[in-house]
Design a protein around this nucleic acid. Structure first.
Lengths: 344, 344
DNA sequence: TTTAGCACTCTTGCGGCGAGAGTGCTAATA
DNA sequence: TATTAGCACTCTCGCCGCAAGAGTGCTAAA
């Protein structure tokens, strides 16, 4: 009796509590359930079951004589076992279609990703956060130096995944074409096969040693490489920040401030989205491993570029989140996003 | 007597009220002033003067028996005539020095600007907002097409101010070098002397007509140009968003939400910073011409690139802002920023 | 095993009340 | 005539108590 799993009836009641609480944000009592959900049980019976569920850790009580609210494990059980699949409404479908029309015109990948964040937040009414494509694993392909005039040249870096970065550098006066060519081809040789994240300080020092002559050009180029590596780490975009204020659990200014400050620290958000696992992922409360987010849930999904998952989009809300709806939306959006990126 | 200007004594009292209210955020009463400020006047006298100042529109009363708070014109008068120059503390100077050390390493101008926003907000404890350099007025200099392999090429656009953008395009199979060269030099000819903002849809249509052959490449390049123009419009970065929550005037969630939503609409922030006038500029409350900002003040300053003002940094706070301190900080920061940009 | 009934607990909203702060007015003062 | 002291008045704010409402756990009956 003590160790038995969670009975069918308990599951139904848990389901009712979770969905009701998600909707109303009010602790839900036994009366409410027996009235609103067709379980054909009296309030008293439900009360007993709820007491059990509380003891099992799936529900909790804000205070003695209030209704129950789901605990973190309650949500977890709901998400894993009880949640039913949501359908998008016709309006939502339509809305997505219209917004993606805008997207079709964009070519710049970061721009697309940013706009996706906006769509996601508008559709869900939660805050969205997306991670720009991570080029850290991209392999170095080609380094080009394009003279513009007598004392300026453009250094262009290209990776196998189509990531391009460039920078202006100053050319020293006395430098002929051949020498320039030699430096570049030497650099190309040295860099061949490296990934962006492989451009460590140590590696760059090593290169500096190899190409000790013509230090001036080299210095500028290496600086550029270092910068690219540094930059490739934090590219988190947010959408609908103000939406968190719609949630009754964030009427408390202190909580809001903590979250907002967190949002400003791009670096700390990074790892939230670095899900190596493909597909939709749900992390509830403390599962996020972030103090500030212990009362938030995050639904993420990866998107693909050249067939590989290179980034993720996510929806951030209170643990009392409309999981079913959010999952449906995020699945739809990433699938459309992937189509779009395939065409790039 | 009725039409006379504001007497010296009234100015002193107004000065006291404003500084005190800026510090405490509490309506300030006559007693407080006679005690805290060495005006050698009794509370009663000050009361009379304050009643006058209220009638003149410089002060107002939240309710009958409360102290006075400055009105918008009160702040305006203070800023124009009464405000004394603030000095930075040694710690602040030191802090700035340390943070700018970080900045010295950066080469990417947008990155520098963004980091400046962060410094500004940390130093002032208000929200900062900065406008990235506007390249709209930059003149077109050169368009390059660099073949990468058999079916990809890189289009590079360069302006006279050193702004660089590039894009990958697909090359059609049958296309020899000469023809490619011809297209590019033709485009260069047509674009010569144009500014970025001059790349209007009409102009692009016209180009499309001129170069009606080889439409495929052209199309992609023109799309790129259009995108650059569109993008060059909204580049506002925010720093220290959560700082507004520290202000007692923003304990009201509704107000916070309105501001946060505004922050998300980059486009609408744009014009706030498009100050054609060089130097420090203060706009108080409704002077910002933005409903959401009728209770906020904005202190802005332009920064220079190649000797021309191309963007602005700003500090956003409640009208009850520490104007003197903010002005001192913003002057310091832009001066250092300008030095930094000169070296780029 | 389920359910009805009941006593008990805890939150929430509301009205009243007193303290505190500040004002405007009047009359006294320099 | 300008300044100041004194005083009655007003308004906010926090606190207290109270009643209503919602929900529980327990007991006893079905």
């Amino acid at each position: 009796m003590k160790l038995m799993g969670i009975s069918e009836r308990k599951q139904k009641i848990l389901h009712a509590v979770v969905t009701d609480y998600i909707q109303t944000a009010e602790p839900v009592g036994s009366r409410t359930i027996s009235r609103r959900y067709r379980l054909d049980l009296s309030a008293a019976t439900i009360r007993n079951e709820m007491a059990d569920l509380e003891e099992m850790g799936y529900l909790s009580q804000p205070h003695t004589s209030a209704g129950r609210i789901p605990s973190q494990s309650g949500y977890r059980f709901y998400v894993d076992n009880l949640m039913d699949q949501a359908e998008l409404t016709a309006q939502e479908e339509d809305y997505i279609r219209r917004l993606f029309l805008q997207l079709d015109k964009m070519r710049e990948i970061d721009q697309i990703i940013q706009y996706t964040a906006k769509i996601l937040s508008q559709l869900t009414n939660y805050t969205s956060l997306v991670l720009g494509p991570q080029f850290r694993r991209s392999a170095f392909k080609q380094l080009r130096l394009i003279p513009l005039d007598d004392n300026k040249a453009l250094v262009v870096l290209i990776t196998d995944t189509g990531f391009i970065r460039n920078n202006l550098i100053d050319l020293p006066q006395a430098l002929n074409q051949e020498e320039l060519g030699r430096i570049i081809s030497c650099l190309n040789e040295q860099l061949a096969g490296l990934t962006i994240e492989g451009l460590t300080a140590a590696r760059l020092r090593q290169l500096r040693g190899t190409l000790y002559n013509r230090l001036d050009i080299l210095e500028q180029t290496l600086n550029m490489l270092e910068e690219i590596r540094a930059e490739s780490e934090s590219r988190v975009y947010l959408g609908g920040t103000s939406n968190i204020l719609n949630q009754p659990e964030f009427q408390d200014l202190a909580k809001v401030r903590r979250l907002l400050s967190l949002f400003e620290e791009g670096k700390r958000l990074n790892f939230l989205l670095e899900t190596p696992v493909e597909g939709v992922n749900i992390r509830i409360g403390t599962e996020n491993n972030l103090r500030e987010m212990s009362e938030c849930s995050l639904v993420t999904a990866t998107y693909l570029l050249h067939g590989r998952p290179v980034g993720a989009v996510g929806v951030l809300g209170p643990t009392r989140m409309e999981y079913a709806r959010v999952v449906a939306i995020i699945e739809k959006i990433t699938s459309r996003l992937n189509d779009l990126l395939k065409a790039l």
